[in-house]
Amino acid sequence: MTLVIKQEKPKSTFSKIVEIISTMASRPSGLIGLIILVFHVTLAITSPLYAPHDYKAIDPSLMLQAPSSEYWFGTDSLGRDVFTRTILGGRTALTVTFFGSLIALLWGGALGIFCGLVGGKIDDVVMRIIDAFLSIPWILAMLLIVSLLGTSTIVLIPALGFFYGKGIVRVARAATHDVIAKDFIVSARARGHGNFSIIWNEILPNVRDAIMVEGAMRWSWMLLGFSSLSFLGFGVSPPTPDWGLMISNARGLMSFAYWAVLAPIFGLSSLIIGINLTADAFAKALGIDRSTKAPV
């Protein structure tokens, strides 16, 4: 048989990542999302190096100053520099939610794939438990955990990871269900491969994309959730700067010191928008259109 076929080289993982990122950046929304996200991450890593003031220096004489050349975003009710606190305020939130999302991704993905694969009674029972957890308002449960175990990051990361992983279980299970009926799984079964081998070799490469996109979306939700906890006073303890906490402290004075509340709001919402846009572009670059598949 004479066939003229153009030779293609296999792609390395690195070049695949480069390709995905360049596809993401090729759309305006993806590019904006990536820029915002990279900006926030860089800021979080480097901000302690150039923060102009001490974030915890209280000076009653400087209370609620309007933005000036010295205090770019003004000062808050305790006379602390809002600019310094804003650029430092995303550090805890980003770290906690990033690791929280990773945990959510791992346990949610693993349990989802497992349920999708085994099916039957086990699947039924596990999914009903997940449904039961979904019906509990997560914030109440979080408040309970935090008040029992304290607000340290060691408590917050796994707790948030647990609550935000429930949705991933469903997505991973649904994605596995799509794959499980395909003949290549039947073929692997007929050859006599074990469950672990089927999950690792046959299912995971096909559901990985869907789970990762879901994880990226959960990250932005978790960020909002974490900030809500801080806002309620259960997240980060003062004087550590945190957007949620800053909004909570300054909101009473909003009518005459709007800067103290606007700056952290801007920080928080831009980060969430950035993650959302990036996650959407990521999904499109991987060929998953979230607009046609509603997340559970």
Partner: peptide, 11 residues
């Protein structure tokens, strides 16, 4: 086994 549709039977 060889299946009907290779689109489905190959990962």
């Amino acid at each position: 086994l060889i299946f009907q549709n290779p689109d489905e039977s190959l990962n």
